[in-house]
Design a protein around this nucleic acid. Structure first.
Lengths: 234, 234
DNA sequence: TGCATTCTTTGTGTCGACAAATAAAATACA
DNA sequence: TGTATTTTATTTGTCGACACAAAGAATGCA
C-alpha cells in the first residue's frame, strides 16, 4: 500500500487534527486505497499521525454519519461496502438529484456561479484530454457539485454530495475501462447543460441533466448489471 | 426547564451511553425543550447523566453530522438555528421527498409494510382525536417515515428523515395554532394515500402525496410567509 | 470618563491509561 | 481426532486530567 500518510510534522494547531484524519481517510476511501471492508485500526492510525486516539475516533464517527465507514460495536470499524445488489436505489436517487440540482441552478444561478461552473468544466475537459481517468472522476464530481451549489438548496447539496462520493467509489472500480469517446460525449453534454443554465432555461436544463444521468447510469451498468431505476414520467 | 433528564441509575452497559445522550438531546432539540441557539455544556451534561465527557462528545458529533447542532470551535456547541429566510428550500425538498417516497412505496410495498403504515396511521388518528398537538406532530412524522421505509431507498429514507425532523421543530413552534378541521383533513388524506399504495397506483400516490405536501406547506406558510417553492410541472 | 491591556474564568480539545468485550489460541475432554 | 471449554491477546469504550483558546472582568492609562 502506498504510504502517503507518513507522520506529518508534529505541533499541529488545536482542532486541526480531526480534519487531517478525516480528509486522509475520506480520500483513501473514495480512491479505494482503502477498499470496502478494510478494517481501520485506531491505534495504528494514531501512531502513524502521531496523535491520540480521541481525534481519530471523532473523525471515524463523522465518516460513519456519512455512511463511508461502518462501526461494528466493540470491533474494528470497517470501510462501508458498496451495495451492488441495491445499486438501482443509488441510480434512482442520483438521477433525481442530477435533475433537481440542475433545474435549480438554471433558476437561481448568478454570474459568479456560472464562472465557477465553467472553471470546473475546464478542469474536467483538461482531465479528459490528458486521459487521466482518476482526475476525470474527481473533476466530474466537482462540476456537478458546483451546479448544486448554484441551486442553493442545502438539503440537495448534501444528499447529492453523498451520492457523488459513492459514485466516485463505484467509477474508481472500473476506471480502467474508460475509453475515449464516452468522456468526450460527457464534455459536450456538460457544455449543453452550462448553456441551459446560462439561459435560465429550466425545462431544457432538466431534460439535459436527465439525459446526462441516463448516459452515466447506462455507462456504469454496461459494466455491471441491469437498469432497475424507478421511471418517473416528467 | 423540565428536568426529565435526571441522573439515570449507574451501571450502564458498554456502548449504551452514547445512544442515551443522543436520544435525550435529539428529543429535547426536536421538541424545542432545547430551543435553537441553546448552548450545550458538555461537563454539565456529563454530570447530569453521570458519565464522562467522551460519550457525550460522540453524541454531539453525530448530531452535528445531522445538522441538529452546530459546533463552534473552542466554544460551546449550540442547537442549530432554524433558517426562516430559506424555508423555501426546506419546502421544496420536503415536497419532493413526499412524492418520491410515496411513489416508491406504491411500487415496492409488501403486505408487512402496509400493516406497519396502517399502525402508524392509527396512532396518528388517535392523536388527532385526543387533540394532542405534540403527539400529532410525532405520529405524523412516523407515518411518513414508514412510507419511506416501504420504498426501500436508503438515500431517500435518510434525507426524508432529516426533513421530517426539521419539520417537527418548525411545527412545534406553532403547535398551539393547530385547529380541529385541518388535522381531520390530514387523516382523510393519509387514508387516500394508503389506498393508493395498497392498489400499487404509482401516479395516484404521487398526485395525492403532492397535494398533501402542498396542504402542509400552505398550512405552515399561513403562519409564516410566502410560498417560494420551486414549481416542477409533472 | 473612554479606551486599550492584562488577568481571570469558563469550557473545549487532546492525551494517556484502564477496563470491558470479542476473537483467536490453547487446553481439556470424550 | 473432533468438540467444548478455558485462557490469552487484541482492540474498543470510557474515564479523569491537563492544556489551550476565547469571552468577560478587572485594571491601567490618557
Amino acid at each position: 500500500m502506498i504510504d502517503r500518510t507518513i507522520v506529518p510534522s508534529t505541533d499541529r494547531k488545536r482542532g486541526e487534527g480531526v480534519k487531517l484524519v478525516y480528509d486522509i481517510l475520506r480520500d483513501d476511501i473514495l480512491d479505494l486505497v482503502l477498499p470496502p471492508g478494510s478494517p481501520i485500526d485506531e491505534v495504528q492510525l494514531a501512531e502513524r499521525l502521531s496523535m491520540s486516539r480521541t481525534p481519530i475516533r471523532e473523525a471515524l464517527v463523522r465518516l460513519a454519519g456519512e455512511g463511508l465507514v461502518t462501526a461494528l460495536p466493540n470491533r474494528s470499524t470497517i470501510v462501508s461496502n458498496i451495495d451492488f445488489l441495491n445499486l438501482h436505489t443509488f441510480f434512482d436517487a442520483l438521477t433525481l438529484m442530477y435533475r433537481v440540482t440542475t433545474r435549480l441552478a438554471a433558476e437561481c444561478r448568478t454570474e459568479v456561479d456560472l464562472e465557477i461552473i465553467r472553471t470546473r468544466q475546464a478542469e474536467f475537459t483538461r482531465a479528459v484530454e490528458a486521459h487521466d481517468a482518476l482526475a476525470m472522476i474527481a473533476t466530474n464530481r466537482n462540476f456537478h457539485a458546483a451546479i448544486a451549489e448554484a441551486g442553493r438548496n442545502p438539503y440537495y447539496i448534501s444528499l447529492f454530495g453523498r451520492l457523488l462520493d459513492e459514485g466516485r467509489r463505484i467509477l474508481r472500480i472500473y476506471y480502467s475501462s474508460f475509453d475515449d469517446h464516452l468522456p468526450r460525449r460527457y464534455v459536450i453534454e456538460h457544455e449543453d447543460i452550462i448553456a441551459a443554465i446560462d439561459a435560465r432555461d429550466v425545462e431544457k436544463a432538466d431534460q439535459l441533466a436527465s439525459a446526462h444521468a441516463d448516459q452515466i447510469v447506462r455507462h456504469i451498468q454496461e459494466m455491471i448489471g441491469r437498469d432497475r431505476r424507478q421511471r418517473i414520467a416528467l
